[in-house]
Design a protein around this nucleic acid. Structure first.
Length: 549
RNA sequence: GGCCCGUUGGUCAAGAGGCCUAAGACACCGCCCUUUCACGGCGGUAACACGAGUUCGAAUCUCGUACGGGUCACCA
């Protein structure tokens, strides 16, 4: 035993505290029964990934539903992969999506809470303290194996068809004597600290995953690395210590971690910690050449959450869509509670899919339309201009040149009892309303097949004479109906349908002619409103242009 | 390859041995409404991976096969 204490001091001479110090520093949280303490622990290796957003959402809503705490912790123990500005990108990204953070990094720069620091690179002493304790107890040891040696070991195992890894008799450094270790250290050989795993592959470890259910796996017997040669912990070790000290009750993370759970459970037990509840979230998938695969940062633009901002999706829409994936009963709830915030939804982990869902951009569009159609013209104006300011400067200046006009454009078929459901994302707006802005107006004056050019011209001439900008919808259409018979068109559609041979067409066809003259399109929102917004002079100009054309 | 997990219409999914002649949503198609388009209403096409077994009875339980996914680092 004293050998172990000597070893501990030799390996980690600068560590003077003991685990008790930290146990006292971070007392249990004072939370009501049933409150769940959850977290996301992203590593700052790039921009905010859709999967991280999804995990954050699930954690957030779990904390909210249970009256618990949602915190963030930065897992920056791999300095090689670290990206500058990575923390800001992730945390600020979450904020932009309305994911509120109770504790930890609440912005790119600020941390909040009594269980910090919330950045693993600032917690080295804590991990080393626990590692030292493990060494003292003979549960961890130094390993001097080089990458080459480890590679050779692996090759040997593969050749002999033996399970690979640093376990059992393959764990050479387990047997090193104190003298050998001393000599190695004096030679300046780098070393890692490994767990002396008490596990046996023959035994089973069973745990109940809150999402996936009961899972049974062989016990861990690998002497995996606790502390890397730079004294920084691996994920596994940091996870056990941080989630214990931060009193996480539910570890909800991507399901790529499932296979490591035996390691984690073993660590928690060895360290004398209470094992948290695990919930492994299935990844969001993507169809690639007919094959399903996890959505990838490298291959899929939509993996980066920034993509949605560029396209002009509302963050609410993305969240709403993610909720439909997260909870199979969410859509039913939404129908019953159309006006509530998703935050009021009672989230149940059991309603999460066990297998990964394919990302469905078409469904997102639909969800998005349902949200946008509830906005009024002022809100749309504000959102579109905010979007354009960042992603379409030209459109921005056009929109803001005459804000009142722009707002009246967005009011068309919107500030009415039954708003139109058309726009899903802001980058569609320019094209959708192009005819409302002279800069983008490129008319296609092709007439429908059933209307002759002469009739169209004649109609426009007659209409021009009676057109008044003050006409309401009723009056507006009445004028078209009044002209119809003069051109052998039916005033009423029913009239035409009852006796199609008696007419060239019906008033609807003529309104299409007018629509084409005014907008250069065959399909638009309410034409009467469009003409009112465009104004008399502009409409007249366009009608005359169409007559000439 | 070892170890885990999964497989219900094109997609998301409900489903916990008889309520399944298998719900709903998106997409698609048709009809109605309608000045176009959209909205809305009504209707339609379309699924339990396969094979054994247990059972009076299986989408649901068991086993096997196939396929898909994850994981096997001093990365997280």
């Amino acid at each position: 035993m004293s050998q172990n204490i000597l070893l501990a001091d030799l390996l980690l001479p600068n560590i003077e505290k003991t685990p008790d110090y930290y146990e006292n520093l971070y007392p249990a949280r004072n939370l009501p029964e049933g409150a769940r303490v959850v977290r996301i622990a992203p590593s700052p290796t790039g921009y905010l990934h859709l999967g991280v957003l999804f995990a954050a959402l699930v954690n957030r809503i779990t904390a909210t539903t249970s009256g618990g705490v949602f915190f963030t912790r930065i897992e920056d123990t791999d300095k090689k992969r670290e990206v500058k500005g990575g923390i800001e990108d992730i945390i600020d990204g979450l904020n932009r999506f309305g994911i509120t953070i109770d504790e930890g990094f609440i912005s790119g720069k600020e941390q909040k809470g009594n269980y910090g620091p919330y950045q693993q690179s600032h917690r080295a002493e804590i991990y080393q303290t626990y590692a030292k304790e493990l060494i003292r107890q003979g549960l961890a040891y130094p390993c001097f194996c080089t990458a080459e040696e480890l590679g050779a070991l692996r090759d040997e195992q593969e050749a002999g068809k033996i399970r690979t890894g640093y376990h059992g008799e393959w764990a050479k450094c387990r047997e090193l004597s104190l003298e050998q270790i001393k000599a190695n250290i004096e030679e300046g050989k780098p070393f890692v600290i490994r767990l002396k795993s008490p596990g046996n592959e023959e035994n089973k470890v069973i745990f109940d995953d809150a999402i996936k259910g009961k899972i049974e796996m062989p016990e861990n017997d690998e002497d995996f690395v606790l502390l890397k040669s730079d004294g920084i912990p691996t994920y596994h070790f940091a996870h056990a210590i941080d989630d214990h000290l931060m009193h996480t009750t539910h570890v909800m993370r991507g399901d790529e971690w499932i296979s490591s759970v035996p390691k984690h459970i073993q660590l928690f037990k060895i360290l004398g910690f209470k094992v948290p509840k695990f919930a492994h979230i299935s990844p969001i998938m993507k169809l690639d050449n007919g094959a399903k695969r996890k959505i990838s940062k490298r291959k899929d633009p939509e993996a980066a959450v920034h993509f949605f901002a560029e396209q002009g999706y509302m963050s609410e829409a993305v969240i709403e869509y993610l909720m439909t994936i997260a909870a199979s009963d969410f859509e039913d709830w939404r129908r019953a509670n159309p006006d509530k915030s998703y935050k009021d939804f009672k989230f149940n982990l059991k309603k999460m899919s066990v297998s990964g869902a394919l990302f469905d951009g078409v469904k997102l569009l639909d969800v998005s339309k349902n949200i946008v159609c509830r906005l009024n013209s002022i809100e749309v104006y504000n959102f579109v201009t905010a979007w354009a300011k960042e992603f379409d400067k030209e459109f921005y200046s056009i929109l803001t040149k005459n804000p009142e006009y722009s707002k009246s454009v967005f009011a068309i078929d919107r500030d009415v009892p039954k708003p139109r459901k058309d726009i899903a994302k802001w980058n569609e707006v320019k094209d959708y309303f192009s005819y409302m802005f002279s800069e983008y107006y490129t008319p296609d004056l092709t007439l429908p097949e059933n209307v002759a050019k002469e009739d169209a011209v004649l109609f426009l001439e007659k209409y021009k004479a009676v057109y008044s900008p003050d006409d309401d919808r009723q009056e507006w259409f009445n004028k078209i109906k009044a002209i119809a018979p003069q051109l052998q068109f039916a005033s009423e559609t029913k009239e035409y349908k009852a006796n199609p041979d008696a007419f060239k067409g019906h008033a609807g066809d003529l309104s299409t002619v007018l629509r084409i003259a005014i907008t250069g399109r065959r399909n638009t929102p309410d034409l009467c409103s469009i003409m009112q917004v465009l104004g008399y002079d502009e409409c007249l100009k366009r009608i005359e242009n169409a007559i000439r054309g």
